[in-house]
Each structure stands twice: as C-alpha cells, then as structure tokens.
Design a protein around this nucleic acid. Structure first.
Length: 454
RNA sequence: CGGGGUAUAGCGCAGUCUGGUAGCGCGGAAGUUUUGGGUACUUCAGGUCGCAGGUUCGAAUCCUGCUGCCCCGACCA
C-alpha cells in the first residue's frame, strides 16, 4: 500500500488532551480521532489493528468451542425490566426514546438479550452446554472517560455467555474460557495475568480479571513474580478434556488487584524477593453468576430427571478496543509504538529514501510487488521527503520490520532490514530482503506469529 | 456527580487585564536548496476568535446565559 493512497494523518506534535502515552501515540500515529468525550473514530491504521485483535479473539473463542452471534447495540427497556436491571443500572446506561415513545437503551452489556436468545432455543439438558459470544460495540456513559480508548464510553467488547445444566458444567465452561483467554492475550504478545476478582453477591471463587502489567494501569496489583513465567497452553490444548490443572496452575500463586488484595496473605504466601507490586490494565474478565438472570427471566432447562431448573451461566468479556491502549502501554519506546507481529497494522514498512532515483524506485517496486503478491502487507513510504522524516514516521507507527532502500546501499546491491523491536539492522540483497518473508504469510494465517511477550 | 481549568487557522499557542477590526511556531501549497535519523530559505493559502444575547460609535477583549472539552477526586470492561 503506497502511503499516499492510504489515509495516515500523522501528527508531529503531541495533542494537548492526551495524557497517557498510549493515547498520545495513537493520536500521533493517526489511529483514532476523538469525536466526543470517550467516543472515537477509528482511522485506517487503528482499524487495522482492531481487526487483527478481533481476529485473534475470534479464533481462540472458536477453538474453545464458543459460537459467534451478533446482537444489536439497541435493546428494548422491557427486556431489562425482566431481570430487574433497568431501574438498577443507573445513569451509566444510555437511555433512548424512539419516535413511538418506546424506551430503548444502548447496550452496556448483553446478559438479558443473550438469555432471551438462549431461552428461545434451548429447552433440554441435551442442548447444553452452549457458549455464545459476540464482538460488538457497547456504551457505558462513564462520568469521566479518560485515557483514550482505554476508558471510552463507546468501546468494542467481546462478550461471551455460557449456559450449563448445573454448576459443575458451568465450571467446565468457565475453565474453557479461562484457558482461551490465556492463549488469546499471549498471541497478542501480552502477559495478562488472571487475578482473583470480587464476585459480588454470588460469592464463590469463579471470577478472575485478566490484567496486563503496566505502570500506567488504573489499579494497583500484587503478584508473585513466578506467575509471569508460567507456560501458556498450546494450540492443541484439549478443550473437551479436563482443564482444571491449567486453571489451578495459574490461580495458585498470589495475584490480586487492590480491590481484593490481602497484604497479610501476600506476605505469608510469597517470598519477599518474589513480591511484585505494580499497576495493571484490566483487559478481560471471566465470571460465573449462576442463575442470576436465568431465574428471573425463566430460562428453564429440563434435566435428565424431567424437572425444569434455571440454566447456570457465566459471562466472559474482553475489552477489544481497550487492548489497543494496553498493547501500546506494554510495547513502545521513545520513538513510538512497537507492534507485536500478530497485531501489527501492516507487516512491514518499505522506505524509499530517494524517490525519483531510478534504481531506488525500481528496487522498491520489486519489493512491494513481490511481498504483496506473497500476502505480506507492506506500507510503502514513497513520499518526497527527507530520510529522517521517514525514519521517524516509521518508528512512530511501529511496524515490526522496516525495509530501507536508498541509492547508497543499492550501489552495492543491498538494502537495509531493520527490526523495530530490537533496532537491529542488517544489510542484505534485495532478494534476500524479500526472501526472509518466506513462510511468513502461512505463519500469519495460522496464528503463529508470537514474539515480544512483555 | 463534587472541585478546578479551558475554548482564537489542521496541531500547539500568544493576544483578553487596559475595547480600535487577529498574530507566532509547526503542519499544508509553490519554489530554490539539501539528501541515510524530522535541512535552510523565499512566497502563498488558511480563522463566523465555542454558541446565543447584551453594553458600546466600535467586542476575541467587558457583562449575562448556555454548550463542548480537559484535569483532580468519587465511579468504572
């Protein structure tokens, strides 16, 4: 993609409203544009990352056996009256009236609607378990949105809901989502740690928040250092099998947010040299809540004994748009963003240092066309500017690989390949620069681009 | 929702106190120059000064009301 054809409104200066680093970088790199407090347009570069994150989330949900649906953003108030939440939810819920004076709301979450959907299609224990999910925009009218997409009012969320006959089954569904989350975040190059979370009135131990460690996180967290190096379940993990050992492994060592932090217990269970106190960004949560909605909404399941009982449910969220911010917080340097290969908006930046020079133009043309034909997504900077600007821009938007082509190198038949993460530069032939992407597309398609876990 | 700010060109700002018809830097366009880490210079374009009302011969500037946005706190995927 020639940069001139793309839409990439890069800002040279920091916008004043952007306080935290990820927000500044997103605005500077032309990824988003604020339209109102906590509401953003997604510009092409940001949208590409959003789509790649979605793709990973979708693949891992599907792998774990969840089934995708898509529910509307607008919901009828009456649906929420069934569960009693219409009046309970408060001013965070955006309420709308249509021309017929019908009361609607912009969904902040979808337990009611998914329960209504499941209720209409599931009658017997034979139909369960089922886990349904969607990736859809939500709206929560936060009193004070901030931190860019990390805490917007409108945000893209993956929300999954499991339905089981009994609590034992629900625990299995919970574990499947738990394991899928470990894989999902790891594939994005993130170390997201499941931490004990408040379970509210339901109680029990079946709620975890997945937290990415970052100094700029919203909440203080306390973890055992050893959690950071626990193994991620492999691609061929058996979701039909017993996953409890994996969950146990990840939930035994101490890891808690400030809300539930128990300092005495932390000191008792974790040796001083392994205690890490830092801050974190919540990127996902898994939660078992039993019959909280199925009971009032009468989603009753006939069991093997013929008796009806409410389905046992859990919900599982991932803040998809928030992940953009979390990824940048976790992976950047002074020059800009450093995208993990798995979510980068383009796979490589091609920098033509001297537009108009016949040899340079020809080499760039060849590289762009051969890589594009091989399925490697290339952003080609063929602008008529100084090399310094191109380097600065390429570093800012953070594509994993830069292919730098100029007359000096071409005089000896070489170009430079720079790794954005390590900064390592190699001088190689044009063909070799192209050749090093052999197998890349296949790895990308299969979701095998893993590096940069931070 | 309490408290505090702010609104002037695409972005960042000055001008407001003391009323006289808007300016700087960056960015953009044209050109000269330069050419491997944001080159220098010249010229040009670009603004209903957030909105509404008021005071005045005259309002970015003074007064009143409203709105947007930002920051701190409480709240939150």
């Amino acid at each position: 993609m020639p940069r001139a054809r793309f839409f990439l409104p890069i800002l040279r200066d920091n916008p004043k409203e952007a306080e935290i680093l990820s927000h500044r970088l997103m605005l500077r790199a032309g990824m988003v544009r604020q339209e109102a407090a906590g509401i953003y347009s997604w510009l092409p570069l940001g949208l590409r990352v959003l789509r790649r994150i979605e793709a990973i989330v979708r693949e891992e949900m599907d792998r774990a056996g969840a089934i995708e649906v898509l529910m509307p953003t607008l919901q009828l108030a009456d649906l929420w009256r069934e569960s009693g939440r219409y009046d309970a939810y408060g001013p965070e819920m955006l309420r709308i009236t249509d021309r017929h004076k019908r009361e609607l709301l912009y969904g902040p979450t979808n337990e009611e609607m998914i329960t209504a959907i499941a209720r209409s299609g599931v009658r017997s224990y034979r139909d369960l378990p089922k886990t349904l999910y969607q990736i859809q925009w939500k709206f929560r009218d936060e009193q004070r949105p901030r931190f860019g997409v990390m805490r917007g009012r409108e945000f893209l969320m993956k929300d999954a809901y499991s339905f089981d006959v009994d609590e034992a089954g629900a625990k299995l569904s919970y574990n499947r989502m738990f394991v899928a989350y470990l894989r999902t975040f790891a594939r994005m190059g993130l170390t997201a740690i499941p931490m004990r979370a408040e379970t509210g009135p339901i109680g029990g131990d079946l709620s975890h928040e997945f937290i990415v460690l970052a100094e700029t996180g919203e909440s203080a967290v306390y973890v055992d250092r050893d959690v950071l190096s626990l193994p991620i379940p492999a691609e061929d993990v058996d979701y039909a099998g017993d996953l409890s050992s994996i969950v146990e492994q990840w939930t035994t060592l101490y890891a808690a947010t400030e809300d539930v932090h128990d300092a005495a217990r932390f000191e008792r269970e974790t040796p001083a040299e392994k205690r890490v106190a830092t801050r974190g960004i919540e990127v996902g949560q898994v939660f078992f809540f039993g019959a909280k909605y199925t009971e009032p909404m009468k989603m009753l399941i006939a069991g093997p004994d013929g008796a009806d009982r409410p389905a046992q449910c859990g919900s599982y969220g991932i803040g998809v748009s928030r992940l953009l911010g979390a990824l940048i917080e976790a992976s950047h340097d002074e020059a800009g963003i450093i995208w993990p290969k798995s979510v980068a908006p383009f796979d490589a930046a091609l920098l033509n240092l001297k537009v108009g020079d016949a040899a340079t133009d020809a080499a760039c043309f060849k590289i762009e066309h051969q890589l594009t034909a091989a399925g490697v997504e290339v952003l080609y900077d063929e602008s008529d500017g100084r090399p310094g600007e191109k380097f600065a821009r390429a570093d800012l938007i953070g594509l994993p690989t830069q292919i730098i082509v100029g007359p000096k190198g071409l005089a000896s038949g070489t170009v430079e390949v720079k790794d954005r993460r390590t900064g390592a530069r190699e001088t190689v032939s044009v063909d070799s620069a192209i050749g090093r992407f052999a197998g890349f597309t296949d790895a990308k398609r299969r979701g095998l681009l893993r590096e940069g876990r931070s």
